[in-house]
Simulated scan of single mutants.
Amino acid sequence: MRLLAIETSTEACSVAVMVDGEVCERFAIAPRRHAELVLPWAEALLAEAGTHRSALDAVAVGRGPGAFTGVRLGISIAQGIALALGRPLLPVSTLAVLAMDGLRDGGDRVLAAIDARMGEVYAGAFARDGAGLRALGPERVSAPDAVEPPDAGPWTGVGTGFAAADAALVRHLGDHLGPVDAAALPRAGQLVRLAALSMAAGGALAPELVEPAYLRNQVALTLVEQAAARAARG
């Protein structure tokens, strides 16, 4: 299986290529440089892996939640590549990608959280499931003190949501938490592994059918309203 994966939903920019189970990745915290970095990194990684775009079986992308602009950019680039190649797209939850890092420390249950700004976090609970994981409920955006895991835990915590609002989520969950990595950001190397499992399970979609998971619909609405107001002003 040959996959290209793109993750730009947060301040981190990450691209990975998987060829027959071997993964090459580039990752950097690079706010506002995602559009500049993604395509050159993709070409460099394909060359490093000894393959070419035309040999790809599919393209994978982090579908969010995350920064509105970053989510939209990642999906747009991935759709463009997939459409040009006539290949399917594999959308993967950015929270699930983040949760994969939490499994590396040996935990079986992970609470992934991303700082959503405006005093809120994006959060989702996941459990180990073979080589991947499964969601234990819907992903949500809320104030930290409204995040409730499915049970008492302990839970491994991963993601910038645990540092948001002066670590309000850590204080709220208290003894429900085990180890916490509040600096973790989603990586395309984990994304491509989840995408390979999705591909094997028949999860590939036509590129035009892939939708972003913003969760905070009012952000998208506000941007649409701003655009309409600018158009009205001429």
Rank of each mutant, 00 (worst) to 15 (best):
R128T: 12
N217F: 10
R128K: 13
A168W: 02
S142N: 12
G130W: 13
A165P: 02
L133V: 08
A146H: 12
V121E: 01
Q226T: 10
V210A: 10
L205W: 02
R230H: 07
R187N: 12
E208H: 15
V224S: 13
N217C: 14
F162V: 01
A131P: 10
G157R: 00
A204M: 08
D145I: 09
Y214C: 08
Q218A: 12
A227S: 09
G157C: 02
L136K: 05
S142L: 13
A163K: 03
P144V: 05
P186C: 08
R193M: 15
V192E: 00
D129K: 13
A123D: 03
L209C: 10
G137E: 15
V192D: 00
T160R: 04
D151H: 08
Q226P: 14
A152M: 01
E139A: 08
P207T: 06
G161S: 11
A206G: 14
S198W: 00
H172M: 14
A220V: 13
G157N: 01
A164G: 06
A182M: 03
A163C: 04
P150T: 08
R134K: 15
Y214K: 09
A123M: 04
E225A: 15
L194E: 05
A227M: 06
V141H: 01
R140Y: 11
E211N: 10
R187E: 07
A227Q: 05
P207A: 04
R230A: 09
V158R: 01
A229T: 15
D181A: 04
A123G: 06
L221P: 12
A183R: 15
R216A: 12
G202T: 08
N217K: 14
Y214S: 07
P144Y: 03
L221M: 12
A227N: 06
H176C: 11
F126C: 05
G124T: 04
L191S: 02
L215N: 09
V224I: 09
L185G: 00
A163Y: 01
A201L: 14
D151V: 05
E120F: 06
T156D: 02
G159K: 02
R216L: 10
L191E: 01
L136C: 11
A182L: 03
D129W: 10
S198R: 02
A201R: 14
A164V: 06
N217G: 11
Y214E: 07
L177T: 00
G159W: 01
A213T: 13
T156M: 12
R171P: 01
E208C: 10
Y214T: 12
A200M: 14
G174D: 05
V224N: 14
E148H: 10
G153A: 07
G161A: 11
V224G: 12
A125W: 00
R134S: 07
L169K: 02
R140E: 11
P138M: 15
P207Y: 02
Q218D: 14
V141K: 00
V192W: 00
G202K: 09
D181E: 09
R216N: 11
A146L: 06
A127N: 13
A168P: 03
Q218C: 09
G178K: 06
A165E: 06
S142I: 10
